[in-house]
Structures are given as C-alpha cells and as structure tokens.
C-alpha cells in the first residue's frame, strides 16, 4: 500500500497540476485575506475615532468570513485533485499493471485516497501562514482556528471520497471532474434549498445531508460528535461505493 501511496504523491508533485492548483488557491485566499484585513483596519480606525463599543469581535469579521471563503474555494479544488486517481490509470492502461500486482483493491483505494488527501492538506497547510500573521497583530482565537481547520479537513475528506468515486466511473478525467463538481455543488445547493423550505421533516433531512451545514458549527468553534460522525459516514459510504464499482468493472471487463 505504501508503494502506491508514494507513487501517487510522486506523480502529483512531478506534474504541473499540483503547482497550478495550489498557486491559484493560495493567491485567491490571499486576496480574500487582504480584503478582510482592509475592512478590519477601517473598522478599527472608526472605532478608535468615535470611541464606540460595537461588540464586534475579530472572529466575526475576519476569521469566519475567511474560513467560509476558503471552504468555497476548496469545493472547486477537490475535483481537480481527485479526477486523475482512477480515470488516468484507465486511460493510460496502467490499471492493468496496478490490478495485476499483488495488491488488493482496498489497499490501492486507501493509498490513492490518502495521497489525494495529503496533497489537499499540504495546500491547506500553506494558509497557516495567514493565521500566524493574524496572531502577530492581535491575539488570535486559536480554539476557533483549530476547530475551523478540523471542519475543513473533515469536509475535504468527505468530498474527496466523492471525487474518487467519480474518478472510478470513467476513463475520462474531464468527465470525472465534472461529475464530482456537479455532486459537490449539488450537496452545497441542498443547504440553500433546505433554507427555502424552512420547516417540516424534509427541510430537516435536507439540512442534515447538506455538507456545508455541518461545516457551519465548526466555523462557530463548536466541535460536535454528530458533525464528525456525519462526515465520517459520508466518506466511508463513498469509498465503499468506489470499491463496489471497481469490483463490478472488473467482472464485466
């Protein structure tokens, strides 16, 4: 399993995909961060000038919007990282090598999934620089920061499982990326839909399966077992589905 993990990372870091995706993500996050900081300093100067107490905390105007923006950006990142995992092997025919080496389907899946997750975590870890910057100018709320990162990690894990699943369906990487982006945006839209319906059991159900809804409590600094369990189950469900697909594909040839 370690061999496949190492191979996947080798391919990620030797191809331009990683650098392009990471570069774009970090640039845009940086722009959001700068924007928020400008707003914060504007507000701070006004507060100083008029001596008013607003009750607004830094968490509300800086950290929460920043993490919310990041979570949105990541939605677009995941399909690009996950699309090649199986589709590329199918297209290049290397799947015939991989599936005839003495490795089980589960070992290969686990290695590929963890490699994708590693890449996303590396990209995400770069944003820690911003948190260090914040802590240099004011006293940062590290509890909130940690719970937000945990929430993002769990959300990324869940969406990556979905992306791997999409990649196992096809030999075309663009199709794989489109399917996973479509499904991810679908789960995102469900949350909006739930808000429109507002009440009733259907609304509750929709709220519960919307992925961003569960992220919300992490971004408020709340770590609940329910949300963790949700992401965990979501991840396992799609990884299980992927295994099934791979099995079926080999049966049919």
């Amino acid at each position: 399993m370690r061999s496949v993990y190492a191979k996947e990372l080798y391919i990620y870091f030797s191809s331009p995909i990683f650098y392009v995706v990471a570069g774009i993500f970090l640039c845009i996050t940086g722009i959001f961060f700068y924007n928020n900081m400008v707003y914060v300093s504007l507000l701070a100067s006004q507060i100083a000038q008029y001596q008013i107490s607003t009750g607004i905390s830094l968490n509300d105007i800086l950290l929460r919007p920043l993490f919310a923006d990041m979570s949105l950006l990541i939605l677009f990142l995941i399909p690009i990282i996950s699309m090649r995992l199986y589709a590329e092997e199918r297209a290049q025919g290397t799947i015939e090598l991989l599936f005839t080496y003495p490795l089980s389907d589960l070992q290969i899946l686990a290695a590929k999934y963890l490699a994708g997750l590693t890449v996303l975590v590396v990209i995400g870890a770069c944003t820690l620089v911003l948190m260090v910057l914040i802590s240099l100018i004011t006293s940062a709320d590290w509890g909130l920061i940690i719970s937000s990162y945990l929430g993002l990690l769990l959300m990324v894990s869940a969406f990556l499982a979905l992306g791997v699943f999409a990649s196992s369906l096809t030999r075309n990487q663009i199709v794989a990326a489109s399917i996973s982006l479509g499904l991810i945006l679908g789960f995102w839209a469900i949350g909006w839909f739930a808000n429109t319906i507002n009440t009733g059991p259907i609304a509750t159900f929709l709220k519960e399966i919307s992925l961003l809804g569960h992220l919300g409590s992490f971004l408020k600094g709340m770590v609940t077992l329910k949300d963790i369990a949700f992401y965990f189950c979501f991840t396992l469900f799609f990884l299980f589905l992927t295994l099934r697909i791979l099995e079926r594909r080999t049966w049919r040839g």
């Binding site: 370690r2 496949v4 190492a6 191979k7 080798y10 391919i11 191809s15 290049q92 799947i95 080496y101």
Partner: peptide, 20 residues
C-alpha cells in the same frame, strides 16, 4: 502501459515495492 510522468528508476522502485 507505463506511468509516463515517472522516471525509469523511480518506476522500477515502485514496481519492486508493489510486488512485495
């Protein structure tokens, strides 16, 4: 079929590890 992004030795090392 081969992993076109890899180098000869890194590919062979991967195969050796994968084959246990």
């Amino acid at each position: 079929p081969l992993y076109h992004d890899m180098r000869t030795t890194s590919f062979l090392r991967f195969v050796a590890k994968a084959k246990g």
